[in-house]
Design a protein around this nucleic acid. Structure first.
Length: 369
RNA sequence: GCACAGGUGGCCGAGCGGUUAAUGGCAGCAGACUGUAAAUCUGCCGCUCCUUGGAGCUACGGAGGUUCGAAUCCUCCCCUGUGCA
C-alpha cells in the first residue's frame, strides 16, 4: 500500500508536521477538516472551499444514507463525483448520530435502530452496514462504527459503551477489509485504497481510554481517532483525555480528534500532536452570526455594527474581509439574507484554515527562542 | 346619509366584568452554539425606582357613566373597513 503517512518533522512538545497521502489528495497536516454533513459544507460552494485551501472535508454516513441514499451515490460514481469535490473526504460512520439522535434510536449489541429524523421511518445500522454505506460513498477515509459515549457517564456505563465500541471496531474492520475494493473509484485510482480509522472511546476515564487505544492498535487500523470528546465536559477534561491517549497511539499513523474545537483549542491540540480535527463550530456559528477573529468573538448582528465600515477582522485577508464591511454583514444577518450564511462561513473557515496553516509553518520551522 | 363590522402595547392579533402590564406571532435587543435533527435555540422586550424580590406610575380611539372593581357593560363623540343610498 506504500507510505501513506509521512512525517516531516516532530517537536519536543509532541507536535507533528506530516503529510497524509490519500487517494484524492495529499493532505498537509495538522489539518482542520470542515464538516459537510449532507454533501455540502453548508452555505459554501466547492470551488470556494478549494480557494480557501480546504484539503479534506467530511460527509456523514447516516445523513447521506437517508438522503439521497448511498446506492444512488454509488451509481453516480461515489460522493466525490456526486458533489464535485476533487480533494479528500472523510465520512463519519453514524456513530455520532447514535449520540445526538438519542431520542430516536435503540442500541443493542447487534447495532442501532434509528427512527429517521426526516420521516420517522425505521432503519437498522450495524457496523457492517455502516461499512457498506461508507464504501459506497467512497470517501478517502471511513470511520469505524462506534458509540459516542455521552457526558457525564458513570464508570459502568462508560465500560459498557466501550465494550460495544470495541466489538463494533473489530466487526467494522473485518467487514471493511473484505469489501474495501468495492469503492466506486477502485478502477480509476487502483494504487490507492480507501482507509479506515478506529475510534478510541472510554468516557472520561483514563484507564478506559488506555484500554481502548491498546485494543484498537492490535487491530491495525489505518489511523486512530479519539472520539467522545466535546460532548459537554469541561475543557480541562478534554485536554486531559487527549494528553492521555496521544502518546499511546502509533507514531507512524495519523491521529484524529473528532469534533473539536474553538480556534485556540485546535491550535493547542495540533501542537500536541493531533494531526486531524473537524468541527461544526466555524460553520454553524457563522450561520448564527458569530465570527471568529484575531480580536476574539464578533457577534456580527449586534446593533453596534450597524454603521461600522471596517472589515470583520482587520487582520484577516480572506475574500470576505478584503471586500465587505461589518455593517454590510450585519445587515445581511438582520435581513436573513442567504448570502449572510455564505460570507460568515467563508470567513470563519478561512480563519480556521489559516490557523492550521500557521501551525504547520511553525512546526516545520520552529521559531528560535 | 343609513346599515353592519371594527378601533388593544413598534406592527399584526387574542381577551369580552375581577386571577390583565394584558395570550400568541412578528419586529427589536442580548446570549448560546465543539465527529450538524441547528439559516437553530434561550432570555429580555410600557416607564421609573430599589438588591434578588418587589415598589410606584402610565396604559386597551376620546369624554363621560354604571359597578366594590371596566380593555371588557351603557351614552355621546372621533376615526377605519364593507354594503346600501
Amino acid at each position: 500500500m506504500g507510505l501513506t503517512f509521512e512525517l516531516i518533522r516532530t517537536t519536543d512538545a509532541g507536535g507533528r508536521r506530516a503529510q497524509l497521502h490519500l487517494p484524492h489528495q495529499t493532505v498537509q497536516t495538522p489539518v482542520f477538516m470542515p464538516v459537510g454533513t449532507a454533501g455540502t459544507v453548508k452555505a459554501v460552494p466547492q470551488d470556494t472551499l478549494e480557494q480557501l485551501g480546504a484539503q479534506i472535508i467530511l460527509g456523514n454516513t447516516y445523513h447521506l444514507y437517508l438522503r439521497p441514499g448511498h446506492e444512488p451515490i454509488r451509481r453516480m460514481g461515489g460522493l466525490h463525483e456526486f458533489i464535485s469535490w476533487p480533494r479528500a473526504m472523510l465520512t463519519d460512520s453514524g456513530g455520532f448520530q447514535v449520540f445526538s439522535l438519542s431520542e430516536l434510536r435503540k442500541v443493542t449489541d447487534e447495532g442501532v435502530r434509528f427512527r429517521s429524523h426526516l420521516d420517522g421511518s425505521s432503519h437498522f445500522f450495524t457496523p457492517e452496514h455502516s461499512m457498506d454505506v461508507q464504501i459506497a460513498l467512497g470517501a478517502d477515509i471511513a470511520m469505524a462504527f462506534d458509540e459516542c459515549t455521552e457526558y457525564p457517564a458513570e464508570r459502568g456505563r462508560a465500560e459498557e459503551s466501550l465494550r460495544l465500541t470495541m466489538a463494533w471496531a473489530r466487526r467494522s474492520l473485518e467487514h471493511f477489509r473484505a469489501h474495501q475494493h468495492e469503492v466506486p473509484w477502485a478502477a480509476d485510482i487502483p494504487d490507492r485504497t480507501q482507509r479506515l480509522f478506529g475510534i478510541v472511546q472510554g468516557g472520561m476515564y483514563r484507564d478506559l481510554r488506555k484500554q481502548s487505544a491498546e485494543q484498537l492498535m492490535e487491530m491495525d487500523f489505518d489511523g486512530y481517532a479519539i472520539g467522545g470528546l466535546s460532548v459537554g465536559e469541561p475543557r480541562e477534561l478534554t485536554l486531559e483525555m487527549i494528553s492521555e491517549v496521544l502518546p499511546m497511539l502509533p507514531r507512524d499513523k495519523p491521529r484524529y480528534v473528532m469534533g473539536v474545537g474553538y480556534p485556540d483549542e485546535i491550535e493547542q491540540y495540533a501542537r500536541m500532536g493531533v494531526d486531524m480535527m473537524d468541527c461544526v463550530l466555524p460553520t454553524r456559528a457563522a450561520r448564527h452570526g458569530l465570527l471568529f477573529t484575531s480580536e476574539g468573538r464578533l457577534t456580527i448582528k449586534n446593533r453596534k455594527f450597524a454603521e461600522d465600515q471596517g472589515p470583520p477582522d482587520p487582520n484577516c485577508d480572506c475574500m470576505v474581509c478584503r471586500r465587505y464591511t461589518r455593517a454590510y454583514l450585519r445587515h445581511l444577518m438582520q435581513a436573513r439574507e442567504a448570502l449572510s450564511a455564505t460570507l460568515n462561513t467563508i470567513h470563519n473557515l478561512a480563519y480556521y484554515l489559516k490557523i492550521m496553516q500557521r501551525v504547520r509553518g511553525s512546526l516545520e520551522n520552529p521559531e528560535p527562542i
